[in-house]
């Protein structure tokens, strides 16, 4: 697998406050990479460095195996968390301007504007000023401005914040569509729900340090605690003391049981002696739970 982006021991601090400490990342081509972390963890700083908005104190960033340089601007599409458009400028002119700033020729840029405004069904608005548009409409235009130069790498900082649900869904579909066409996407967010569904790979930053890195499945596996949920109809009132009874409705009883060195088969055999087993399942934490747990853990350090 080739990497679109590699980050090696990147550090950056503002005065005495470290924003990034020795960050290493590697993003494969054609995947959606989730960059997670609570607000203020350093995500935006990392993204700004990749976008050459600010410079790192040390470490290096490579895109397509080449050290970051101004040539890379046209390969990256960036949707910042805080975003806006020229209010007095017409939609068409504005998109044309942003496309040309990214290095497209005027004729090429015109074609792309036409393609995207038709695709997102806003070509009728081309000659309207941004200030005359609804917020949702402006958001679509913002998204077009981000992808209009067909970047290899799309960096979206909190892409769904500020979008209404309908537009958020639309943008999500567009992101998946772009991914299927081969675009690599870095998606930075502190909202976990979007991640389980979208991301192939996840890295988490907290307090300027990377605390987690892996595929969604890997991370969940890593976070297994050998904890199982057993649901059974008890034959009698008694059960082993390390079984933790959970509140449940009806005659069935739920337990959380840690597998203390034994195997699942041994546990099941033991369970059979206490009653009729209805279900037996390992508890694997969701990404959201892992995220919250990790954030808490690193906060205590």
């Amino acid at each position: 697998m080739t990497q679109i982006l590699e980050v090696h021991s990147l550090s950056k601090s503002y005065g005495n406050n470290p924003a990034l400490i020795d960050i290493n990342l590697s993003v494969e081509k054609g995947i959606i990479f989730g960059l997670l972390g609570p607000n203020g963890a350093g995500k935006t700083t990392l993204i700004r460095i990749i976008n050459q908005i600010i410079e790192a104190d040390s470490g290096e960033v490579k895109i397509n195996n080449k050290i970051l340089n101004p040539e890379h601007i046209k390969n990256i599409g960036y949707l910042p968390e805080e975003r806006g458009l020229y209010k007095k400028m017409k939609v068409g002119e504005q998109l044309l301007y942003f496309a040309q700033l990214k290095g497209l020729r005027a004729s090429e840029a015109k074609q792309r504007v036409k393609y995207w405004t038709e695709k997102l069904d806003i070509s009728a608005w081309k000659d309207k000023r941004i200030e005359d548009l609804s917020k949702g409409m402006a958001q679509k235009i913002q998204f077009i401005a981000t992808v209009i130069h067909e970047p290899e790498l799309l960096i979206l900082d909190e892409p769904f914040s500020g979008f209404d649900p309908v537009n958020a869904e639309l943008i999500k579909d567009e992101i998946i569509d772009l991914k299927n066409k081969g675009t690599s996407v870095i998606l930075s967010t502190h909202r976990m729900e979007s991640v389980n569904l979208l991301c192939d790979h996840i890295a988490m930053i907290n307090k300027a340090k990377k605390v987690l890195d892996g595929t969604v499945e890997e991370i969940r596996q890593l976070s297994r605690k050998n904890l199982f949920e057993l649901k059974l109809r008890l034959g009698s009132e008694s059960f082993p003391p390390h079984w933790i009874k959970q509140p449940s409705a009806g005659q069935d009883t739920k337990f959380h049981i840690m597998l203390n060195g034994g195997t699942t088969n041994q546990l099941l055999q033991e369970a059979l002696t206490y009653g009729e087993v209805l279900s037996f399942e390992e508890i694997i934490p969701s990404i959201g739970e892992i995220f919250i747990q990790l954030a808490k853990d690193t906060d205590h350090e």
Partner: peptide, 10 residues
């Protein structure tokens, strides 16, 4: 109007 970050990424 926060256009600036988009601009200076280009």
């Amino acid at each position: 109007s926060r256009i600036i970050e988009i601009l200076i990424s280009s």
